[in-house]
Design a binder for these strands. Structure first.
Length: 458
DNA sequence: AAACAGACCAACCGCAACTAT
DNA sequence: GATAGTTGCGGTTGGTCTGTT
C-alpha cells in the first residue's frame, strides 16, 4: 500500500503550532468548529468543496505534506473528514493533475489496461500520469455504457483482436472451423466501431479470419476471459511479436524488456506514450518474481464462464493431439506470416491504415519497417516459442533467446500469492501514457480512425 | 422556450488492507 | 493476537451540463 507509515496520530510540535494558529485563523468554520468541539460532536460538511476549503487543504498539505488526513480537520478547522480531504486532494488539488479529455493514446491505453486488469482503476491511473482513478473510472463507465447500448464492442478493435488472439492461444483445440464465421462477424462488429475514411482497420484481421487455420485464432468472440494456465503462456510471450517497435526493435530473440506475465496475455501493443514525466510515478515494475494473477473483476458481458475458461485454458492434450496441433499451428503461422507480408497501401503509408489493422501493420509500419529476414526471424521465433508448449505444455522452459534474466522463473507454475502485490501489478512493462508524444512518433492514431471517435455513437 | 434524456463529473459510502498500540 | 485508527480502492449516487425533441 502506498501510505506514509509515519502518519502518526500524535501531533508534532509543528502541528501543535498550527493547531494554535487555526484557532486564530480567522476562518469562521475553524472557530465554530473549535467551539463546537467543546460542546457537541463536529458536524462535518458534505457536498461540493468551496475555494476557501480548497485553499485550506492546499495550505495544510503544503505545510505538512500528504497523509494524516484525519488531522486536517483538527489542525485547520476544515469541516471535512479525512477521507473527503484525501479525495479532494488526489482528485483535484494535487499538482500535475491533467485535466481535460483523454487523448487518443490515453484512451487506447485505458482499454488495454482494462482488458488486462479489469476495474483496477487505481492501477490504471498509475500508468496515466496526471489522471486519477476516478477520472478513468468515470470515463470507462460512461464510454462502456454508451457503446454497449449501441451494440458496439467495449474494446477497440486492436485490443479486441489481441484478446481474441490471447484466448485463441488457450484453445488448443485446432479442430475445423465452426467458429470461423463467428470470428468474421466478431471482427465486423469490432470494425463497426470505426468511422474511418481509411480502409477498414480489421481488413487484415478479417483476412486472417477467413483463412482456414488462422481464423481459429479469432473464434469464438467473447471479449475477455482471464487466462490461467500454462497454455496461456505462449501468447504471453508471443505478444512480443505484436508489440510496436517504436521504442525498441521487436525481436523476440532479443527482448529488450522483461518478459511478460506468465499467465497473462500481454496486451501491450506498445502504444507507448512515453511521457516526459514517466519517472514521476513509481512504475509498476515488472516483477522479478511471480506476478500475481489477477482477474478483471468486471468484464461486461460475455466473459467466458469460469468453468469453460478453465477447461479451455487448462486442458492438456494427449501427445498425438499436440503433434497435430503443432502441424496445424505451423500451417497457421505460415498463413499468418504470409498475411503480414501483404503489400502496404499504394501510397506506401502503412500507418494510414491505423486502427485494428495496426496490430499487425504497425509492426511493419513506418516506425519499424521490418525487412523480410527480420519478419522471418520473428515468425521463426514465434513458432519456436509455441511449438514446445504444444509438445510439453507443462514444463517446457522459455527458449533461451527469449528468456529474461529478470524473469528466470517466469515459466514455472506459480501460485498467485507469493509475491509482493506492490510489485506484481502487471507482469508487463506497460507504457506510461502522458505528456506529449515525441513528434516523431506516430502510432497511427491520427484522429480519424480512432476508437474514441465513436464516443458519440449511441 | 420548455421538457426530457443522456453524458459528464464530483463526491460519498462501504469495505478491505495495513500499521501502530 | 486483538483492537483501533488510517488509508486506499471500487461501486454508486446525485448534481450539472448539453444536446435533442
Amino acid at each position: 500500500m502506498e501510505r506514509s507509515p509515519g502518519a502518526a496520530l500524535t501531533s508534532s510540535p509543528e502541528e501543535e503550532e498550527e493547531e494554535k494558529a487555526a484557532d486564530g485563523h480567522g476562518e469562521e468554520a475553524g472557530v465554530e468548529q473549535e467551539d463546537e468541539e467543546e460542546a457537541a460532536p463536529v458536524v462535518l460538511k458534505k457536498g461540493p468543496w468551496t475555494t476557501a476549503e480548497d485553499a485550506m487543504l492546499v495550505d495544510h498539505v503544503r505545510r505538512h505534506g500528504e497523509g494524516n488526513w484525519n488531522a486536517v480537520q483538527r489542525l485547520t478547522g476544515l469541516l471535512r473528514c479525512g477521507k473527503s480531504c484525501r479525495l479532494r486532494w488526489t482528485n483535484h488539488l494535487r499538482p500535475n493533475l491533467k485535466k481535460g479529455s483523454f487523448s487518443p493514446d490515453e484512451e487506447i491505453l485505458i482499454a488495454q489496461l482494462h482488458a488486462q486488469l479489469g476495474n483496477k482503476w487505481a492501477r490504471m491511473a498509475a500508468h496515466l500520469p496526471g489522471r486519477t482513478d476516478n477520472e478513468i473510472k468515470n470515463y470507462w463507465n460512461t464510454r462502456t455504457k454508451r457503446r454497449q447500448r449501441a451494440g458496439l464492442p467495449v474494446y477497440p478493435p486492436e485490443v479486441q483482436l489481441q484478446l481474441a488472439l490471447a484466448k485463441r492461444c488457450r484453445y488448443d483445440d485446432l479442430s475445423p472451423l465452426p467458429g470461423a464465421a463467428n470470428a468474421v462477424q466478431a471482427l465486423d462488429a469490432a470494425a463497426a466501431g470505426y468511422t474511418s475514411s481509411r480502409p477498414a482497420p480489421l481488413d487484415l484481421a478479417r483476412q486472417l479470419a477467413a483463412t482456414s487455420q488462422a481464423a481459429q485464432f479469432l473464434s469464438p468472440p467473447p471479449p475477455f476471459s482471464a487466462p490461467s494456465s500454462p497454455w496461456a503462456k505462449p501468447f504471453a510471450r508471443n505478444a512480443l511479436y505484436f508489440q510496436f517497435a517504436h521504442s525498441s526493435p521487436v525481436s523476440p530473440s532479443k527482448p529488450t524488456r522483461p518478459l511478460h506475465h506468465p499467465a497473462t496475455p500481454d496486451l501491450s501493443l506498445g502504444y507507448g506514450v512515453r511521457g516526459a514525466d514517466q519517472s514521476r510515478l513509481a512504475p509498476l515494475s515488472p516483477s522479478p518474481g511471480r506476478p500475481r494473477v489477477e482477474l478483471p473483476s468486471n468484464q461486461f458481458g460475455q466473459a467466458m464462464p469460469p468453468t469453460s475458461a478453465a477447461a479451455a485454458a487448462g486442458a492438456a492434450l494427449p501427445d498425438h493431439h499436440q503433434h497435430q496441433n503443432a502441424a496445424s499451428l505451423e500451417k497457421m503461422l505460415q498463413e499468418l506470416h504470409d498475411a503480414i507480408k501483404v503489400d502496404p497501401p499504394a501510397n506506401g503509408d502503412a500507418e494510414r491504415h491505423g486502427g485494428g489493422g495496426a496490430v499487425l501493420e504497425r509492426h511493419g509500419g513506418r516506425e519499424n519497417k521490418l525487412d523480410g529476414q527480420h519478419r522471418d526471424d520473428d515468425m521463426g521465433t514465434l513458432f519456436d516459442m509455441m511449438i514446445p508448449r504444444l509438445n510439453a505444455p507443462e514444463t517446457v522452459p522459455l527458449p533461451p533467446a527469449a528468456a529474461s534474466p529478470n524473469h528466470s522463473g517466469s515459466t514455472s507454475q506459480h501460485s498467485s500469492d507469493d509475491q509482493d502485490p506492490s510489485t506484481a501489478d502487471l507482469g508487463v512493462d506497460l507504457p506510461v501514457a502522458g505528456g506529449a508524444s515525441p513528434p516523431d512518433q506516430d502510432w497511427g492514431l491520427d484522429g480519424v480512425c480512432q476508437w474514441s471517435n465513436m464516443s458519440r455513437i449511441c
